[in-house]
Design a binder for these strands. Sequence first.
DNA 1: CTGAAAGCGCTTACAG
DNA 2: CTGAAAGCGCTTACAG
Lengths: 348, 348
Amino acid sequence: MSSKRSVTIEDVARAANVSRQTVSRVINRLPSVSADAKARVEEAIARLGYVPNLAARRMGGARSFLIMAINDRARTIENWAAGRGNDWVDQMLYGGMMACEERGYHMLFELVDTEPTQAAQQMQRILTSLQPDGIILTQPHSENPALAAQLRERARPFVRIGLPNPDIPAVSVHMDEAGAARAAVEHLTALGHADIALLAGDARYRGSLARREGYVAAMRTAGHSPRVEEGDFSYDKAATIAARWFDEGDGPSAIIAENDEMAFAVLREAGRRGIKVPDRLSLLCFEDTPGVRFSVPPLSAIRQPTAEMVAKACDLLIDRAEGKEVEEEVHVLPFELIVRETTGPRRR
Amino acid sequence: MSSKRSVTIEDVARAANVSRQTVSRVINRLPSVSADAKARVEEAIARLGYVPNLAARRMGGARSFLIMAINDRARTIENWAAGRGNDWVDQMLYGGMMACEERGYHMLFELVDTEPTQAAQQMQRILTSLQPDGIILTQPHSENPALAAQLRERARPFVRIGLPNPDIPAVSVHMDEAGAARAAVEHLTALGHADIALLAGDARYRGSLARREGYVAAMRTAGHSPRVEEGDFSYDKAATIAARWFDEGDGPSAIIAENDEMAFAVLREAGRRGIKVPDRLSLLCFEDTPGVRFSVPPLSAIRQPTAEMVAKACDLLIDRAEGKEVEEEVHVLPFELIVRETTGPRRR
DNA sequence: CTGAAAGCGCTTACAG
DNA sequence: CTGAAAGCGCTTACAG
């Protein structure tokens, strides 16, 4: 069955006694093929085990059947090199590979530098060497207008993962950040908390800003006054803030941290001082990377639907590649609030 | 600079006033190009920002510049779906992408089922649709003789990650498992331990077998009697064994676990009984996934050089693709013994 | 050292 | 509905 040479469209055409265009039409599910011819071709394909050569398809002027996800080089490599897990990459591959496979595409994963000149050059290389049918841009590339312009100029469809950016008209997929912040507040108020602080990330990030707004709005709705601290997404900064709260005695009764790292810092500082979680302090975080399950106690968290967002992006891109018009510009995916063991009513 | 159409070899040829073969020779670093022509071509490439189209190169009968790493589908997806990290995949991508990039190749990552018939079919599809220049086989595919035969028949170079398998003649890359087991024993004997148990994996795995042999040999050399328990790589099994050891009072003073999971189980059971690690029990594990750093206390471990093994496999495959003869069949990579906080002298 | 020719396996218009 | 022709951007022999 399997010899050194692959079975080609020509072999199928001969076996089915049709021309290779007809085979091509069947493969690509184009109309205008007689039922009879179609059946013969399909039989031949199955019998010979024919699989189209993607390079040839691409060369014929068609699609490449490749969707390319772009990630930030430095950050990704740093995580890998440190032997840390890389939840974002894992979930991205998961969502992307499954979505692509289902529709006969392949997911490619590339690293691009943040520095704009380098990014542009690398993007150029990737586009012409691999010729992907679609590109997925993640942070920080999703916020780089020059990259978007470059893709547009070269007529390469792309989707941003992230909240819409007014400077970058493009299809984008994101999680409902504001809604998640609201849900976090509601979860905590339902447990009886009133003094709920937001250990914020960085307001320069669109997502962070949206969470902040959601948080503030929800607090006002509940009749509580918001309390935002700039945590900068960093462990050290969060630890300093938590230490101050705990030592000065005016700490909140519940904290929402915008990422896992900051939540770990709070947990650590609380532990050092014998402050029981959740009895004396409730803690909830955004992000939900794998380590969160293993903290003591395991953290309640807002789960970011990374796999789902990437899968959605792939689907949108494949729709485009197949000529379906994508009308919606903005796609919002639901979050998940996972209650583990760091949130509860306050006890003395 | 960047227009809708990509710059092609033809554009470069025209700009440099040579034929496209000459450009091709320069790109592929073939000899027999005059210094003068070469300089003109290189200048034109730089000026126009030319990047060869990989699909076209492939079609021209050359390489695809694609190296494909194959992983087990079910296991990989299960980890992803559970939201657990996937250290193996992360490190594989890390090593593979860096190695490929350095030599102008791209790393592709594909999932293949374990079931032999499906595996063969999927492999067939992958080979003909993507036409990779080389394949990297990991567990369990690396132990499937039919897959190896298929690759050989289709003349596709491949490298196995894993210990040599007498039934599968092939280039293979692996870690020095026996040496690592020996080093583990030596580390513990140096701390004064004599009653060192091996919480073993599964002897049907080649690597597990090698560790067992290394362990036994090292124990004999040290004049101690070996003590092997079949842990089956599972948390539950390891917990049962540890419980028995601790409760019957004849437990070893040090334990070497063949993976992280089993070490976590031991740590848990010890903790429950107030057995201090490392004061009353030393514990060391193989594998060293990211979670190991966060256990309390952090586990001493033998680090598996996953990234390095995959990088090595890529290099070997690229050497082959570029016509360099690879003479060595077996490539052994060093492990790393990372002493954290679970191993120490016994104290009362 | 250099180029004209043929071909890789497909698809896209174009006729019929 | 169906096929003959041309072409995609390269490389591989083959001449010179």
